[in-house]
Simulated scan of single mutants.
Amino acid sequence: MLASSAEDFWIATDHGRLYVKHWYPAAEDTAAAPIVLFHDSLGCVAQWRDFPEQLADATGRGVIAYDRLGFGQSDAHPGHLDAGFVETEAHGGFRFLREALRLDCFVAFGHSVGGGMAVACAAAWPEDCAALITESAQAFVEDRTLQGIRAARQAFAEPGQFERLRKYHGDKAAWVLQAWTETWLAPDFAAWNLDAALRQVSCPVLAIHGDQDEFGSPRHPERIASLAAGPVAKHVWEGYGHVPHRENAAAVTALVAAWLGAGNGG
């Protein structure tokens, strides 16, 4: 049985509106911290597909996802991403979400660059972040990451491929693609890493990664496990790529539900 209901709405920020969707499980533990999802570099709420609903049902927790400014159904981003965009999301869009929904306690779950943003939120709000889950997160700039981005940029130049982005981001699609490729490939981003933020993470951490991830090797969950101040469970899946929650949603939801059910995450 999947989640019984969901609602979508918009919240205001200093630079535009953010689109938000909230899933409620059929049997919700209202005392448990809800899970907040942070999407990847080309992602949005719609691209999570039915994973949030499955996650809500498996964990008995509310699940909240939002489109960052410039993505999906949120308003356009007013400019360019700077080298600190991963860390600043904690006090940017997420802060407005947290205040609007009065999230005194939450579980941060981020995929890809969203995993880095989830780390930043756990570091920024240590007393309120009950648990951190990273999936295919990049903890630093690796050659494999840059190679994957270059290959993706070339693929999007092929006929019809850009329409995949336009389907989800509309007129913002060109900005979304440029924000990803140009930011990560810029020389001044080469030294970026999550080291400082990870050292501020005191909650339990579940680091999920596929060993065939084309955008990052297992060195990333190893870095997360070595630097996070709280207890870390590292799960590297053999044969999985960059999007385990799409490759095998049932396995990911079962893993997360068991880990949270073991006392991690309030």
Rank of each mutant, 00 (worst) to 15 (best):
Ala6Lys: 14
Thr253Met: 04
Ala123Met: 03
Leu132Gly: 02
Asp188Trp: 13
Val236Thr: 10
Ser112Arg: 02
Val176Trp: 15
His242Cys: 07
Phe38Glu: 03
Arg61Tyr: 01
Leu255Gly: 02
Ile208Asn: 14
Gly72Trp: 12
Gly230Thr: 04
Ala249Val: 06
Gly170Asp: 08
Pro34His: 12
Ala155Asn: 13
Pro221Ile: 03
Trp259Leu: 08
Gln73Cys: 01
Pro218Gly: 06
Glu158Thr: 04
Gln200Thr: 03
Ala151Ile: 01
Phe156Met: 11
His80Ile: 01
Gly160Met: 11
Ala27Gln: 15
Gln154Gly: 08
Glu182His: 05
Asp40Ile: 00
Arg98Pro: 00
Gly216Met: 08
Ala100Met: 13
Gly170Lys: 10
Ala258Glu: 10
Leu177His: 11
Ala257Ser: 05
Glu214Gln: 07
Glu238Pro: 02
Leu165Gly: 00
Glu99Pro: 08
Trp48Asp: 08
Pro126Cys: 03
Pro221Gly: 05
His245Gln: 15
His15Tyr: 13
Val119Leu: 02
Lys234Tyr: 13
Gly84Leu: 10
Phe94Lys: 07
Phe71Lys: 00
Val243Met: 10
Ser112Tyr: 02
Lys21Val: 04
Trp192Ala: 01
Gly110Ala: 01
Phe162Trp: 09
Gly92Leu: 11
Val86Gly: 03
Ala186Tyr: 14
Ala12Gly: 11
Asp75Gln: 12
Arg219Phe: 09
Arg164Gly: 06
Ile11Asp: 14
Ser74Asn: 14
Leu165Lys: 06
Arg17Met: 11
His242Ile: 04
Asp67Arg: 11
Ser226Trp: 10
Val232Leu: 09
Leu260Lys: 08
His39Tyr: 07
Asp50Trp: 05
Phe215Pro: 00
Ser41Pro: 01
